[in-house]
Amino acid sequence: MTVLAHLGTDHWWASLLYLMPVLIVVAGIGFTSWRDKRREAAEGPDGPDDGSATTPPDSSEAP
């Protein structure tokens, strides 16, 4: 943390720090999407209908 704080704006590493929020948001969204898909797959076609159009139309992925 101290190293990061000392980067200021001169070091090229500081440029990468602008990318961090993007990576974190993308990681957060990717994780939630993965969890959603896993959950939907686990629930199968008889699971609660949440109205999502992404619900698989057949039961091939159901356990």
Binding site: M1, A5, H6, M20, I24, V25, T32
Partner: peptide
């Protein structure tokens, strides 16, 4: 909440040290 929490934590993680050093 997961999305918001991830972003807020990312923002807070390094802030105290950085701002304390007054770059």
């Amino acid at each position: 909440a997961t999305v918001a929490g991830a972003a807020i934590l990312s923002g807070l993680f390094f802030v105290p040290d950085a701002s304390a050093h007054g770059i």
